[in-house]
Amino acid sequence: MEVLVDLVVMLGMLVIVPMGLRLADVPQAGTAVRLWPLFAVPGAVSLWLPRGALATALACCYAAGTLLLALSAPRRVAANRSLAPAEVALATALVSPAVAATALVAERWGYPLFGFTLEILDLTVPHFHFAGFAAALVAGLVHGAAPGRRSAAFAALSVPLGTLLVLLGYFIDDWAELAGAVVLTAGMWAVGLLTWREVRAGTGDRLTRALLAVSAAVLVATMLLALSWAVGEATGLPHPSLAWMAATHGVANALGFALCSLLAWRRLPRRTGAAPRARTA
Rank of each mutant, 00 (worst) to 15 (best):
D122L: 14
A146S: 13
W265M: 12
L157C: 14
V41S: 06
R277Y: 06
P37Q: 09
F116Q: 03
L194W: 08
R270Y: 05
L227E: 04
D6N: 11
R22M: 11
L11R: 01
D173N: 15
L113E: 03
S72T: 07
T280D: 02
L141I: 06
G20V: 00
T124H: 08
G43Q: 01
A213N: 03
A78R: 13
A217N: 08
F116D: 00
V220N: 04
T163W: 07
A139Q: 04
A201M: 05
A93W: 00
G273P: 09
A145R: 01
L23I: 12
F130M: 02
L211E: 05
L11V: 12
A153Y: 08
A29V: 01
V45N: 02
G140S: 06
I120R: 14
R51F: 11
E119A: 15
D205G: 03
A55I: 11
L157E: 09
N80Q: 14
F128E: 02
A70C: 10
G115V: 04
A93Y: 00
W36P: 11
L137R: 00
R267V: 06
L11Q: 02
L118V: 08
V33D: 07
A247Y: 08
V191Q: 04
F128W: 08
D122T: 13
A281S: 10
P269R: 02
S261D: 03
A53V: 12
P50D: 07
S241V: 09
V95T: 07
V8I: 07
G110P: 12
E198K: 12
A59I: 06
A106K: 07
R267E: 06
T272A: 13
T92F: 12
D122F: 13
V182H: 00
W244H: 13
D173S: 14
A53Y: 06
A55N: 09
L164T: 09
R34F: 10
T163D: 11
P50K: 08
P37M: 08
S151Y: 06
L259S: 10
Y170F: 15
F154H: 10
F116S: 01
L71D: 08
Y62R: 10
G115R: 02
P276G: 09
L90A: 13
S158M: 13
S215G: 11
V214G: 09
G140A: 03
T163S: 15
L224R: 08
N80E: 13
G144R: 03
A135E: 02
L157P: 09
M13T: 02
L224T: 14
S96I: 02
T66F: 07
G132P: 07
R279P: 05
V17N: 01
A252Y: 07
V218H: 02
W196L: 14
S158A: 15
F171H: 15
A32L: 03
P27R: 10
S82I: 12
N80Y: 03
L83Y: 10
A264M: 07
L21H: 07
P18E: 02
R51H: 12
V182L: 08
L49P: 09
V15M: 04
H249N: 08
G256K: 00
G115H: 04
G162L: 00
L35E: 06
T195C: 05
D122R: 15
L58Y: 12
L184C: 11
G187N: 06
N253F: 12
G12D: 00
H239K: 11
